[in-house]
Design a protein around this nucleic acid. Structure first.
Lengths: 209, 209
DNA sequence: ATGCTCCTTGACTATTCAGTCAAGTCAAGT
DNA sequence: ACTTGACTTGACTGAATAGTCAAGGAGCAT
């Protein structure tokens, strides 16, 4: 579930071409599949000429990578805070689910439909190709699983959930999060996000809040 | 998780053009994203001339729809059997997970990598477009959720799992299944399928087997 | 033999695609 | 004033795209 930087377009008149392209890529790749977003689409959205596009980025894929990398850098501090060891373990997971719901709600209001998670969509699309795009999604999955595993490890140590393999449980949670995002996008419903915290707690054998 | 009809290509020399196109679509759309599979690709794979393609199908999208519809018709009897009321509720869910693992394992051997679920991939790709393609995935999700909800309702009635809203629990299970398929495709690993039965039982509060 | 239907062929269409490139502009440094 | 580097422009390239269409072939019925 993504960062808040899609609020940036409002100030985009003040940004340079490169940043405008990054923002355009982020938005268009969230709404549409990678293969259907053309370089012309990106340039139009960013109000940048195609020659400038290729000055800043070697290729469409390079722009996509840079955009996703930038969004991760944006998102990471929020995740570090949510998953901080200063936050009780189960609350970390609740907050992560709440962050997702908050972002998706804002996006749905902005675009008139539920968008789901751009990492998931990109990953599924590029899924069978060994390439840079697929590894963007794979890497994000690993990073989130790392946060989740640490929280689960702590929750087990504190006796808040039944014992189990933290890495395996984290992978299950990640699958549930990924699937909820896909479901939300496909069905244009916020329900999967609204129910995610409860579902994660069930999966972990944690008491409902 | 899909049908077994992708074993059909071996006999494809005996099939008519239309069927060959349906089989080609199924295979190519499983391996690749819809937008990257061109009509030329489909015709080449099916050894059918483009003019013949358009004789049989109005458009690329029409072929995709027909291919997915055919696969559903193929898969449904197996699902009816697995989710039959004659099968104990939790065993239905275990068997569904086992079917998924079986199909994915066979596919991985055939293609040298894990393919995940074509419905999920198509759905994510077409996610934000209101069109026929997105509803293919949405419809499949609803159908599977219906099976799951019935099994869950029965399991609750038999006291095998704690009480809860069957439709909501079914949706959670469906999210987990969808996410596991996406995860498997992105990471090229059968692990998500291998752990799915256990994860579903956890989600439902069912005892491990 | 003729007509009809279904299917196939192969060339075609206009548009789009990712990417190229020479020339131009601008600001900063010398 | 001149140079340089960063950036922009706008036209271009060859290939690919979904879809079109006239003509032909084959099988069947009359």
């Amino acid at each position: 579930m993504a960062g808040r930087s899609a609020h940036a377009p409002a100030a985009e008149a003040c940004l340079d071409s490169r940043q405008r392209l990054l923002a355009a890529a982020w938005e268009l790749l969230w709404l549409n599949s990678y293969a259907t977003v053309s370089v012309d689409d990106l340039c139009r959205r960013a109000d940048v000429n195609k020659g400038s596009f290729y000055h800043h980025f070697d290729s469409k894929a390079a722009l996509a990578q840079a955009a996703f990398a930038q969004q991760w850098e944006c998102l990471r501090p929020a995740l570090d805070a949510i998953f901080s060891a200063q936050v009780p373990p189960l609350e970390r997971i609740d907050r992560y689910a709440a962050l997702g719901l908050e972002i998706q709600t804002a996006k749905a209001q902005e675009f008139g439909r539920v968008l789901g998670c751009p990492w998931t969509s990109l990953g599924c699309e590029a899924g069978c190709k060994d390439g840079d795009l697929r590894s963007i999604a794979a890497q994000k999955g690993e990073r989130v699983s790392r946060y989740l595993a640490a929280a689960i490890r702590d929750a087990i140590a504190l006796g808040q959930i039944p014992a189990g393999d933290p890495d395996e449980l984290a992978a299950m949670c990640q699958a549930l999060i990924t699937g909820s995002a896909a479901q939300a996008r496909i069905t244009d419903s916020l329900q999967p996000f609204a129910r995610l915290a409860g579902a994660l707690r069930r999966l972990l054998g944690a008491p409902a809040t």
